[in-house]
């Protein structure tokens, strides 16, 4: 299945943030979305997540059976600042989520298995999440999105503020779950993008373009990406 963005545009008054975004994303791949500060990465994600309305264009899934609309439950959106309800414990949040989505979750497991999966220690599972560390909140947020099993995964700078061990665990998780999904991963860290992603997509001048990796070693590839980004006037 492919996820297609077709001539998407979004302006704030005179400022055109997304001018004419068109792209075809294929499932089973992790896409690294790169762009200068202010290039519109978060705006693009917010548009796809329907948190803001678009001015023009469309986005949809396409497979052999044809096109279909993107429903809210198709999307998992993970923000750079982790958001979990403070007044619940980790276990309660997970239980609530499982209750709500009973029926749509394939192969539900005991709650503790999930905690083991993201290595949250037993003693933390019954604490209020307002007392969780940044990394633990981030893991919970990722976990919920993993279980929800969305077709389209939007990750906005998700690893930037995690310690190296947790970041490595997360990368591994993403690689494991990319099968059958489309993962779009925005980041400012060039090394991370090159290391983790199967394809690099640049957002510049309000448009998306892919950077061809073929026949280049990593250093030459990075240089090519930097050159392309330098042309963009944002700062």
């Amino acid at each position: 299945m492919d996820f297609i963005i077709d001539h998407l545009s979004k302006s704030y008054e005179q400022k055109k943030v997304l001018e004419d975004v068109s792209f075809r994303f294929s499932s089973g791949k992790i896409y690294g979305l790169l762009g200068r500060n202010g290039a519109g990465k978060t705006t693009l994600f917010n548009c796809l997540n329907r948190d803001i309305t678009v001015d023009g264009g469309a986005f949809f899934f396409e497979d052999e059976q044809g096109r279909r609309e993107v429903e809210p439950e198709d999307i998992g959106y993970v923000l750079s600042t982790p958001t979990v309800p403070d007044f619940l414990t980790g276990r309660e949040f997970l239980k609530f989520f499982m209750d709500i989505n009973r029926g749509s979750i394939t192969d539900p497991k005991p709650l503790d298995d999930y905690f083991d999966f993201i290595s949250i220690p037993a003693e933390d599972r019954d604490r209020l999440m307002k007392d969780y560390s940044h990394g633990m909140k981030n893991k919970m947020q990722m976990l919920i999105n993993f279980i929800a099993n969305p077709t389209l995964f939007l990750l906005d700078e998700p690893l930037t503020s995690l310690d190296v061990v947790v970041a490595e665990e997360m990368k591994q998780l993403l690689r494991e779950c990319k099968e059958g999904r489309i993962i779009i991963f925005s980041t400012h860290l060039l090394d991370l993008a090159v290391d983790l992603c199967d394809e690099i997509v640049l957002l510049s001048h309000g448009m998306l373009q892919s950077v061809d990796h073929a026949a280049l070693d990593n250093d030459a590839f990075k240089e090519k990406i930097l050159d392309a980004l330098r042309e963009d006037g944002h700062a």
Binding site: N49, P72, E73, D74, I75, G76, Y77, L79, T83, V84, P85, D86, F87, F97, I100, N101, K130, Q141, I144, N145, A148, P150
Partner: peptide, 18 residues
């Protein structure tokens, strides 16, 4: 502040019937 700010970022929470 203690609930919706976080839950509204999850798509399952934003479904109309929910």
């Amino acid at each position: 502040m203690n609930c919706d700010v976080s839950l509204l970022t999850y798509s399952f929470f934003k479904q109309p019937k929910m």
